[in-house]
Amino acid sequence: MKAQVIGGLLAVLVVSACGTAGQSGGGSAGDSGPSGSPSAIGTVEEGFKIGLLLPETKTARYEKFDRVYITDDIKSLCPKCEVIYNNANQDPNLQQQQVDTMLTNGVKVLILDAVDAKAIASSVKKAKDQGAVVLAYDRLAGGPIDGYTSFDNIQVGKMQGEALLEAIKAGGDAKRGPIVMINGSPTDPNAGDFKKGAHSVLDGQVTIGKEYDTPDWSPDQANTQATGAFTALGAANVVGVYSANDGMAGGIAKAMQNSGVKKGTPLTGQDAELAGIQRILLGTQTMTIYKPIKPEAQNAAQMAIALGTGQAVNGTTTVDNGTNKAIPAQIITPIVVTKDNIQDTVVKDGFWTVKEICTPAVEAACKAAGLE
């Protein structure tokens, strides 16, 4: 029965030799088998080593969800596969060292969520030169990667921008005062996509008073940037704040309160972090973006096993990372979360329970929102 399940899951991803194997986006011809498919590294029956490299621990999702889901999914597909895990703690040099160590230890499939997409490219090439395959996870890494799974990141930015614009317009003329934009890390290609998507909605519709890119997605840096912006623009004049994720939104929300920004001023977020959901209920954050991690993790596990067994993977689309073209990608649609649909999104999916959300400090807000 298990073999049937594994075969069925891999069949979704495998491209036959007479199909579009050229989209595998793998390495050079020397790294590939027939029709451009990657050479087989191992078998499901015998198992092989898979390295999982995640970027940081400040964002709650990586340790609580991504690591657990990916590891469990790999074990269900390939019981004898060994998952070797490392977290780079936002240090690109450490992540490069972790790749080297994994390659030395015989890891032949890397699931890589890069701290710095450009800096890691040399490590990706080294992996390929040593016969390994590399799957970019959540962030599109540089170098000759073989596959990619993530969300529609430009759409994430558009959704954030649309929610912010709608909330600002609910209070009057969208240009009645300036907004502040606090974007993500300049070394994360996703941050550039979020920023691009948000600007495509907001440009010409609002007045952008101050805008920052925030190293390492740091909540403390975001707090400092926001405080400086509110001082320069006049806190009472600010009509909205774009925050690229929930972690930074936490630092920004504190700055808004301490600087005297009007209560209820719209503030965006992303990742559906517990604190972000609670701020939405309390009215100090307007929205967040929920990116269902479980299907992303399932994609990663399935693609890793397919690549490890010499199959070319078929994505819902292809992407270009600047050094490799037509990389097969599995892209997932994100979801906007507001006070009105918390129950039907993060709670329904088991991402957070009502008990986790509705702590004593949030209990009254939960009841008012019908979340009990």
Rank of each mutant, 00 (worst) to 15 (best):
N190Y: 05
D116I: 06
A167T: 11
V124A: 12
R139V: 06
S150L: 08
W217E: 09
G171T: 05
Q160C: 11
P219V: 06
G177I: 00
K126F: 02
R139I: 09
H199Q: 14
L140V: 01
A136W: 03
Q130D: 09
A170Q: 14
I145L: 08
A121H: 03
A191Y: 07
V156L: 14
D146N: 14
P215M: 04
K126E: 13
A141Y: 13
Q205H: 10
P186W: 05
D213A: 15
L202I: 04
W217I: 08
M159G: 00
D129Q: 14
K118C: 00
I208G: 05
K195N: 14
L165M: 07
D138R: 11
V201F: 04
E211K: 12
V180W: 00
D203F: 02
Q205F: 02
G192L: 14
S150H: 02
A198L: 09
K169L: 05
K125D: 13
D193K: 15
I182T: 01
V201S: 04
I168Y: 07
L140F: 00
Y137A: 12
I154L: 13
V124Y: 12
V206D: 07
L135C: 10
D129K: 03
A174G: 12
S200H: 07
F151A: 04
A191G: 04
Y148G: 09
V201G: 12
I145C: 07
D152Y: 09
S122W: 08
G157E: 04
A121C: 06
D138G: 03
K126H: 06
D213L: 14
M159V: 08
T149K: 09
A132K: 13
V134I: 10
V156C: 15
K118Y: 07
